[in-house]
Amino acid sequence: MSDTNQETTTRSDTLLAVKDVSHSFGDVNALDDVSFDISRGSVTAIIGPNGSGKTTLAHIVTGLRRPDSGEIALDASSDRPIGYLPQSPRFRPVFTVEETLQFYADLLFTPVDIDAAMERVGLSDVPDRRVDALSGGMRRLLGLAQSVLGDPSLVILDEPTSGLDPRMTKQIFDIAAGQADDDTAVLLTTHDLSYAANADNVVVLNRGTVIDSGSPAELTARTNTESLAEAFLAMVGTTPTVQTGTGGD
């Protein structure tokens, strides 16, 4: 990774480097020598069957779980280097949308424009609505707004659209894609391959191992298929198997 002192002159294009990360739960290998890089301004989708290790990898990259071996290097210097949206996030039900975001904003060192955060995800019309009165999709939008507070260099979204209708799914992917710019990269895990096909890079996990990675076009070309969904099935097979990993994917 680039040295912070030389950042202005030699800042690397690589924001995150995951190198030889392995993790097991007892006898089960959840991740085995996983390596990949994420560039600034990019959207990277991690795809894989259930139990392939996606959530474990997201936890490790976020810093919520320590890998058994391997290194994670993040070239970021903000007071919140990583923003995170867990699967099916819930917030304190007695608070409103605005109060929830204000609480998280108060944890940051730099002031945050809460109105802009709500506007960005389409919640600006319901600032006073309590969390327990939000739909599942709106709660996910609230989580998304929270994940980008403080302008983190890397935003990690763990299955941000699971269980949502197509319209809400599109909205969330559009917001996530819009968040990626010169200083921010987005890493998301998903089963929604139609939207993963719009990512800049795709990492395919199977049984805790990266079986391929590259742009969606590269993956389809290598598997001689016409879509990312077909490429995915060509890589992991069509027969469901018992996969590794616990506590999610």
Binding site: T62, R80, Y84, R90, F91, Y104, L108, G143
Partner: peptide, 14 residues
Amino acid sequence: RERGETSILQTYPL
């Protein structure tokens, strides 16, 4: 922790 907010809180300078 049950709501997932502990994971979120750990990404803040707290």
